[in-house]
Design a protein around this nucleic acid. Structure first.
Lengths: 224, 224
DNA sequence: AAGAATCGGTTGTAATTACAACGGAGGTAG
DNA sequence: CTACCTCCGTTGTAATTACAACCGATTCTT
């Protein structure tokens, strides 16, 4: 029962009693496989009939640009899902998934999960969890788009920071990015971001030290 | 049985036999309501326990910027869902939904749909359809982000057009936007977009007339 | 402690874009 | 036909940003 450790903090299985897990996993044709570092789990164009959950290790999700180069667009940590949107959307993969380390993956057959699985309370919870995961990813993506849609970097930054302040409920809050991470999230150059942050600080709109930010002028948020 | 008309092309009910609809709708506590033009269906901050489907008419989804102004971020047409991500994600509304015309809406109680509803083949199809809708929206949002993440407008445009060409499988294809719509989608100024398109045409990278585009130089897509 | 690496701010320059304003093409209504 | 409207390309200017390069501070390693 190595499983308990990571299953417990896997959002897909939240609320499902431990004793029902074994039979549930069998019914949805779950199977584990271990991948070595740099091994490819999924290729662009692949038909996706299963989605995966990282049990241990780490995955990279990479997108091949039409320039030929590949960019890392996400990393999947323990307990997180991947390829679930392709499986549920009945779409081919548009990304490549690669093992960042030696990684154990639990694969779940999507059709088995949605169609052939007999009814049970555990299964109902599973389906609801799956929808919640898809929905929350939706909300996250929509939020990011609302920032990316701003015309200037200054507006992107303020849009993001205002949302964070709102989410925290305080004017002082911590962000989960370093500068490069925030620049990537906002699709901007790191040094340009630094310049904008410095300007906002000099104007007295906000203050920050490392990842700790504070919005100072309420009116400035309004006057964009 | 006015219902048939729009239920038939509603993705949420696709594959469910007509004769099972009535009992299914009762089980998920579906109820219709008619809204007059400009009436508010959902406000920012509302707790969302139901999601809706437009039976007839049209809705506007609006986001209040922290500037105080409101921007239209989507319109919901007949057969389409709204607020499903908030309901499934168990989140409060971050947008306002307003009737653009006199609009009939079918509300579905999310908890009834996922928990209290007894099992049936129709219900299984419903759940799968719901997941497919959420997943496809996910893919759509991810695609848009991949365009918005480009640093220059030229790259955004080529990223978008390349994806469209790939999707169509041809180098000549039609896009579903007018210029202003494409500019909004790419979060850019319309005249700037026109300028970039003109430059690309002059360089021989692509040709276009109205919404009909053609990518000409394969290498140019690569050399970005 | 020395060296290496990472992170973040600064500078300068060239390129890009936002923005406002204008005008022409094409469609529509009167 | 004329007036009007929408859509789209063009122009000019000011502002913004990407990009490269550099440097100081901090952290980590050995």
């Amino acid at each position: 029962m190595e499983r308990k450790k990571w299953v417990r903090n896997c959002p897909l299985f939240r609320g499902i009693p431990e004793e029902e897990m074994e039979i549930l996993l069998k019914r949805i044709k779950a199977c584990t496989r271990i991948y070595q570092k740099d091994e490819i789990l999924l290729n662009v164009g692949d038909t996706v009939r299963s989605f995966g959950i990282v049990a241990s290790g780490e995955l990279f999700v990479m997108k091949e640009e039409y320039s030929g180069s590949t960019a890392m667009v996400a990393q999947i940590l323990s307990g997180e899902l991947f390829a679930e949107a392709f499986a549920a959307g009945e779409a081919c993969a548009t990304v490549t998934v690669m093992a960042a380390d030696k990684t154990e993956v639990l694969w779940i057959d999507y059709r088995a999960m949605t169609e052939t699985c007999p009814d049970s309370p555990a299964h109902k919870i599973l389906m609801k969890n799956m929808m919640q995961i898809l929905a929350r990813k939706n909300l996250f993506l929509t939020g990011r788009i609302s920032h990316l849609s701003r015309r200037t970097l200054r507006e992107k930054v303020l849009s993001y920071l205002s949302e964070q302040a709102l989410k925290e409920g305080k004017k002082s809050f911590e962000i989960p990015f370093d500068r490069q991470g925030l620049a990537d999230y906002l699709a901007a150059d790191r040094s340009a971001l630094s310049a904008v942050l410095g300007k906002l600080k000099k104007e007295g709109v906000l203050s920050f030290r490392k990842n700790q930010f504070e919005l100072l002028k309420e009116e400035e948020q309004i006057k964009i």
